[in-house]
């Protein structure tokens, strides 16, 4: 990842990021990496050395599945969400949203401590 200041937060949500990119359709590793980078406005730069082990873990947990495609002349491994993975993504996205709302509300007071005019 590019930024070190927020890398800890990102580590905790990498699964979710990868699953959400795969929710848009099946991808091979390189494509996934590029789409994640674009979707995050260049903020999330997931290294191959981190991404492939992560993909293999998600696959072993059966949130995603893979298949090999050899039609292009280059052997390429594609990943896609399983039903279980889609359910997990939906559930975690909800949890994440409510958590983020909570944090946002708390932090708003720090960033903007002055009471708004009535």
């Amino acid at each position: 990842m590019k930024s070190s200041s927020n890398s800890d937060w990102m580590k905790g949500s990498l699964d979710l990021m990868v699953l959400s990119v795969l929710a848009g359709g099946s991808k091979y590793g390189y494509l996934l990496q590029q789409e994640l980078q674009q979707a995050s406005g260049g903020l999330v730069e997931l290294q191959a050395g981190t991404m492939y082990p992560l993909l293999h873990r998600l696959e072993s947990e059966e949130w995603i599945r893979s298949r090999w495609d050899e039609t292009t002349g280059r052997r390429r491994k594609w990943y896609e969400l399983t039903d279980a993975g889609r359910n997990r993504l939906t559930q975690q996205a909800r949890e994440w949203q409510s958590y983020a709302d909570c944090i946002r509300a708390l932090l708003a007071r720090v960033i903007d401590p002055v009471p708004r005019p009535a």
Partner: peptide, 20 residues
């Protein structure tokens, strides 16, 4: 450089194997 070094990379994969 995208792959990191061999120790780090195999370490990452090893964690996956362990979990499996």
């Amino acid at each position: 450089s995208d792959f990191g070094d061999a120790v780090e990379l195999s370490g990452n994969f090893n964690q996956v194997t362990r979990l499996q």
